Amino acid sequence: MTETQQTVESPSVTLGDANHTEIPQIGFGTFQIPPEDTQRAVEEALEIGYRHIDTAAAYYNEEQVGDALAATGMAGKVWVTTKLRNCDQGYDAALAAFEESRRKLKVDVVDMYLIHWPFTAAGFTRETWRALLRLRDEGAVRVPGVSNFLPAHLRSIIDDSGETPAVDQVEAHPRFNQPGLRAFCARHGVTVEAYSPLGHGADIASAPVTAAAEAHGVTPAQVVLRWHTQEGRIVIPKSKHAARMRENLASAGFDLTPAELAAIDALDDPHANVSADPETFTHSQSWADQHVRGNI
């Protein structure tokens, strides 16, 4: 990696909310980073130059993210996203859960608060969305949004509230890039944020990705991240290793050609998801549930 690549900063994306809020496009994800490693990893990410940290109540590391923000003096100075667990859905329950997350993160305002899954089996999605809108109106949340919502889920809360989420954080990577959902979001002004942005090994080992990496003198992972950001998505890659953190942040330092972007788009396989199906995901995300499933 060259010195120029090391010093590249994340570009920003302007969201489609009423305030046209700007968000750093390359964030640092903390899913499955154990609590005992989280503070160190987040402090290192902040030192490297990340200005967007993503966590969730269901990751059970919000407090350690907050410790890192406090220790570095960056609380309130960088973008922080967290998410509402399924077992905390419902109007009053969501408001209470938010206060707990805010306390752990040690911030006055949470930049983005997401409903983690539609969890339609519980029947609380619409009232949960209204609770997030209240938090925004009260100034406690800058941007309310959703995660893992498919078009039908988005239509439901839009029709009920008259308000469209600015962001939908979903699984997206070359071999599962959800073109139908992305098209729906584009039509409705919803910015897609990609989790698991690198997918599994088959994504970065694919022929279009490796060919582009060779052509531009970068790594396959950087090609995949640049594919996301050139097409307008936010990404939250995760790593506990400083060299990889720098590499991910440096992915904004080159441009893929239209033909390279199209070739990576064409890798889509609707059955290549690595995460759960939002239509059938009904886990509570309680500590016991996450522990049993190996997420914490």
Rank of each mutant, 00 (worst) to 15 (best):
Q169K: 13
Y91R: 08
Y113P: 05
I157E: 02
A131Q: 03
P174F: 09
E127A: 10
Q178T: 15
L181W: 09
D160F: 14
Q178L: 15
F119C: 08
R142H: 02
T128V: 04
K106W: 11
P179I: 14
H153C: 12
D159Y: 11
M112P: 08
D168Q: 08
I115P: 00
L114V: 00
W129V: 04
F149C: 06
A94I: 10
Q89P: 01
T120V: 14
Y113Q: 07
V167Q: 02
V141T: 07
E127N: 10
E163G: 05
Y113S: 07
G123R: 03
A152M: 13
R175L: 15
E100R: 15
V167N: 03
D159L: 12
A94L: 05
G123K: 04
Y113R: 05
G180H: 09
R136E: 12
I115A: 01
L135D: 07
P151C: 06
H116R: 00
T120G: 09
M112A: 13
E99S: 13
A152G: 11
G145L: 01
V110M: 05
A166I: 03
L114R: 00
V110H: 05
R103F: 10
L132A: 07
E127I: 09
L132C: 09
E171A: 12
P165A: 05
E99N: 11
K106S: 11
Y113F: 14
V170I: 15
I115V: 13
A131Y: 02
D108E: 14
P118T: 03
F98R: 04
D137C: 10
G90Y: 05
Q169R: 12
V110T: 03
S101A: 09
P165Q: 07
D92G: 13
L133D: 00
V146P: 00
Y91D: 10
R126E: 12
E100A: 15
P179C: 13
F119N: 08
V170W: 04
V110W: 02
L133I: 05
R182G: 11
R182Q: 14
A96N: 11
G123N: 04
D111G: 06
R142W: 01
L181G: 06
P165E: 05
S156V: 08
S161P: 00
A122Q: 07
D108F: 08
D159A: 14
V170G: 06
N148I: 09
V143H: 06
E163D: 13
F176P: 07
P144D: 09
A122D: 08
K106H: 10
K106D: 10
F149Q: 06
F98C: 09
T120F: 05
S147T: 00
D88K: 12
R182M: 13
Y113M: 10
L133Y: 01
T164E: 02
A94V: 11
A131E: 02
D88C: 12
A152V: 13
E99Y: 11
W129Q: 04
F149E: 03
F124Q: 14
V170M: 11
F149G: 07
P151H: 07
F119T: 05
N177K: 04
R155V: 07
D92I: 11
F149H: 08
P151D: 08
W117M: 02
E171Y: 11
